[in-house]
Amino acid sequence: MNRLQSKLRQFDRSRGWHEVDPEHTFLHLVEELGEVARELLGRAAYKDAGGNLAGELADVALLLYKLADQLGVDLEEAALEKLAENEKRFPLEYSRLAMERYQKRRDED
């Protein structure tokens, strides 16, 4: 992730885009999330969305990395810390039982 953030930082600087405020980066991120939602809903409705889910997800990832960089957050470190917290918060047995209940309810619908 750090390599990607560094490459993205260089990409933005070369275009002057490093001047964009974090608030605007966040708005662009939300817009791209909407495009991912559109792709997923198209798939759920068994329609050919005619889009590019991988590309839309990549847009979301790039904007998330950019936002983290703008705010001075080491995204890789933060994600690893959060994963460690979640391992404690959601023990295996509890999580497996919750997933079984989820699948049962989903299958009943």
Rank of each mutant, 00 (worst) to 15 (best):
M1L: 10
N2Y: 12
R3C: 09
L4K: 09
L4M: 05
S6D: 11
L8I: 04
R9Y: 07
Q10E: 07
R13P: 05
R13K: 09
R13T: 10
S14E: 15
S14V: 09
R15Q: 03
G16A: 04
G16D: 07
G16P: 10
W17E: 11
H18N: 15
E19Q: 12
V20S: 00
V20W: 00
V20F: 00
V20C: 00
D21I: 02
P22Q: 00
E23V: 04
E23D: 07
E23F: 05
H24C: 03
H24R: 06
H24Y: 07
F26Y: 06
F26L: 08
F26D: 02
F26Q: 01
L27R: 10
H28L: 13
L29M: 03
E31G: 08
E31Y: 02
E32G: 01
E32P: 02
E32R: 00
L33Q: 07
L33G: 12
L33T: 13
L33E: 09
L33W: 04
G34L: 00
G34N: 00
G34A: 01
E35F: 08
E35A: 09
V36K: 01
V36D: 02
A37Q: 11
R38K: 10
R38M: 04
E39L: 10
L41C: 13
R43D: 15
R43E: 14
R43K: 10
R43M: 15
K47H: 12
D48N: 15
A49M: 07
A49E: 11
G50L: 12
G50W: 02
G50S: 05
G50P: 08
G51D: 03
G51R: 02
N52A: 07
N52F: 04
L53D: 04
L53R: 04
A54F: 13
G55K: 03
G55D: 02
E56R: 04
L57G: 09
L57F: 04
D59K: 08
D59G: 06
V60K: 02
L62W: 10
L64V: 11
L64Q: 06
L64C: 09
K66N: 13
A68F: 01
A68T: 03
D69V: 00
D69I: 03
Q70G: 03
L71V: 01
L71Y: 03
L71T: 07
G72D: 02
G72L: 04
G72E: 02
V73F: 00
V73Y: 05
E76Q: 11
A79M: 13
A79N: 11
L80G: 05
L80T: 08
E81Q: 15
E81L: 14
K82C: 12
L83C: 07
L83F: 07
L83Y: 06
L83R: 11
A84I: 14
E85A: 13
N86K: 12
N86A: 10
N86V: 14
K88H: 13
K88Y: 09
K88F: 09
K88P: 03
R89M: 06
R89C: 03
R89P: 01
F90A: 05
L92Y: 14
L92A: 14
E93A: 10
E93M: 06
E93C: 07
Y94H: 12
S95K: 06
S95V: 04
L97S: 14
L97I: 13
L97D: 13
A98N: 08
E100W: 07
Y102T: 10
K104S: 10
R105Y: 05
R106I: 03
E108I: 01
D109L: 14
D109W: 12
